[in-house]
Every structure is written in structure tokens, then in C-alpha cells.
Simulated assay, not measured.
Amino acid sequence: MPKRILNKRYKILGHFLFWLTSISFLCFIFYLYSQEINVALVAKALITNIGFAISVYLNLYVLIPRLLKKKSYIFYVFWLVLLLTLSSAFIQFIIVYPLRHVLGMSDRFSTFSTDTHSAFFFATFFYVLVSSFLKFIKDWLSMQDLNYKLAKIEKEKLEAELKTLKGQLNPHFLFNSLNNIYSLALTKSDKVPELILKLSDLMRHIIYESRENYISLVKEIEFVDNFIALQKIRTSEKTRIVYSRMADIPSAKIAPLLFEPFIDNAFKHGLPGTENSDFIDIGFSFQENGFLIFKLRNNYEETELWNKNNSGIGIENVKQRLEHLYDRNEYSLTITKQNQVFSVLLKLKLK
């Protein structure tokens, strides 16, 4: 049986049990006054609950969605009071005319009076209040469940995008780096063993260490060191590359692979080959208030990818993960493109 139909049946059963309990309770209350059980007593309890039900369901399915949820508070209160008044009058009218004479009702609940009307009015109000409270609790729980599911979907989406980012980085960067290292090996460069070790550390970080939401800042900075060192292999000697960072790295945690998309794009798209003018400036600094500052600047040409308003999946992934993993007061990201210079300023609260 489909879950939707099953839930609907449970809902109907719940309502049925609620009103059955209410009728039984009112039968007991009326018995305390009349000290006898007869058809008239059950009829009064049934008619009273019909009046209660009219107010409850009109409030739940008409007044709340059409007035209260739309913040029409004055109209909601007006129609609610009118509904309670008419419902209470309905209960008394049915009990007094004609059930009082047909079934021989003789107690004070069968007499139309101001006191009796007030009693039914506040009893009806109590049922409306309780049912409204239960509805709000149910709606709140449903909203919490929906928010949880949306957060889970968003997390899974970000994880999938991060995996896609890793998948794009692995073959592209790996093959380029291996080709460059191979070229150095042919010239028997002394840098080859060191570069192979850096490449190994870099791949280990991408595949294994960056699986968690937060990782050691030390490991992430080491990854950036290795990444920049390997990128420099294929960069022209005329390109000015400045990389600076703090000597003492704080013992803190950070979301992984936040800087790699910006650095990768700087090397990939930010070096158009303009003679003696290509540059990349990358810097890390640390503030005493616990914020890490990442700055990046590089030149580009108007024909480059930046001019097409397409920052790529990597940078979009960074924006979404920052929003998902950090509070709004824990980070700020500013990206500017001006005078053929691409700039990034990321301030991030360390964990």
C-alpha cells in the first residue's frame, strides 16, 4: 500500500479516536450531573461534539490557512469569535429544540441561558485552542523534517560537486605534472625526486584527507605549497609569481580545497602570455581575532574565461560550501575584475 494512502488512513483513524474519546468524556461529565445513563445523555454528548467539530475543522481548514497564515490577525479573531458564538448557539438550539422535548432532557444543560451559552462557548474555544496547538506542532515538525531533508540534499549536492571538482583536478593536473616532471627527468634535474614527493602528497590530500568537512589548516597550507610548486613547473620564467604566508601556521581547522579553485584558475586562465606583464600574487595572513586572510591577484585578458561570467564549478562550489559550513559572520568573500586584474579576498574564521 502506498505510504501516502497509509498516512491518510492513520490520520482519519486518529481523528476518529479523538472524537470517540471526547464523546465518552462528555458522557461521563453529563452523568455526574444527571446520575443516570440514557439515550438523552449520549445524544447531548454527540450533539455537543458536532458543534465542537464544526468550529475545530472550520478553524483548521478555513480560518488558519486563509487568515492567520496570511497575517490577517484582526479578521481572524473576528471570524473566530463569530464561529465560536454560532457553534455554541447551534449546540444549545439542537439540545433545546427539539431534543429536549423528544428525549426528555431536563438538566440545566438543556436550558437556553447566558451561563450555559458561555460554558459551551469556552468549551468550544478550548477544543479550538488544543486542535490549533496540535496543528502548529505538527506543522513545525513537518517543517523541521523538510529542512533536514533539504539540508541533507544540499550536503549531498555539495559533496557530489566536490567529487566532481576532484575528478576534474586529478587527471588534468596529474597528467600535466607528470609530463613536466618527465621533461625534467630527461634533463636529469635534481628537482625530480622532490617534485614527485610533492605530487604524491598532493594526490593523497585530494583523495583521502579532504573527505571531512573540516581538516587541519597545516595540511591545507601544505597542499597549497605543493600545488603552487607543481604549477610553477609549466609557467614561463617571465611570469612574476609571489607567494607569501605566515611562518607559524595556527593549530586550527578549515574546510578543504577552498583555495585551490582560485589558484588553479589563476594559473590556467590568468596568464594570457603578455610579455613581461603576467603576474600572480598569492598571500596568506592570520589575524589575532581568529580570522585567516587569503588574497590573490592575477592579470587576465578580456578574451579569457573571466569575461564570460563563468567562474566554473570550482569557485561556485567554494561559495556554496562556505555558505553551508560557516555562519554568515564567519566569512566574507570578495571577487573583483577590474582593469584586467582578477582579485580575490577571502576572510575566514578558523575552527
Rank of each mutant, 00 (worst) to 15 (best):
L345N: 14
L103T: 10
K71Y: 15
Q92F: 02
F125G: 05
S236L: 07
I280F: 05
S24E: 11
E316C: 04
Y73G: 07
E316A: 08
P65W: 01
R100W: 03
S244I: 10
K44I: 04
S110V: 04
I64N: 04
S118E: 04
S142D: 10
M143A: 11
L258F: 07
W79V: 06
K347P: 02
I12M: 06
L230R: 00
G273D: 05
F112Y: 10
N213T: 12
F173N: 02
D190W: 00
F109M: 12
W19D: 01
Y127G: 04
L80I: 04
Y73V: 11
K163A: 15
T303C: 08
L84K: 01
N38T: 06
K232Y: 02
N59H: 09
Q231C: 10
L169Y: 00
I249A: 07
L60S: 12
K198P: 02
V77E: 03
V56K: 03
S132I: 04
F78L: 15
Q168V: 02
E323T: 12
M143P: 01
Y243V: 00
L350G: 09
R245V: 07
L217W: 08
S118A: 15
A53K: 09
F267T: 00
E301N: 04
D201Y: 13
M1F: 13
N179M: 03
S72H: 14
K349T: 06
F284W: 05
F90G: 10
P256H: 05
L296M: 11
L158P: 04
T85F: 14
T235G: 13
F223W: 09
L86M: 05
E222S: 09
N7T: 07
L217Q: 06
P261L: 00
R234T: 03
E36F: 07
S177Y: 01
T303F: 05
S285D: 11
L271A: 09
S332V: 05
E212N: 10
S244Q: 12
E330R: 08
I94E: 11
V77H: 01
I241S: 08
D145Q: 14
K11M: 13
Y300T: 05
Y76I: 08
S22L: 15
I215T: 03
N317W: 00
L83S: 13
H172A: 12
K347E: 12
E212P: 04
Q92T: 10
L63K: 06
I91Q: 11
N59L: 01
P171Q: 07
P256Q: 11
S131D: 00
S332M: 08
A255L: 11
F286C: 06
S131M: 12
P272D: 04
K351L: 12
Y57M: 07
T239F: 07
N49C: 11
A229V: 04
S142W: 11
V42R: 01
I315A: 00
M1D: 08
W79E: 06
L26A: 07
F259P: 03
K138T: 11
I196D: 07
L217H: 09
G312S: 08
K232R: 15
V39N: 13
L184P: 02
K152S: 10
Y97F: 12
F78A: 14
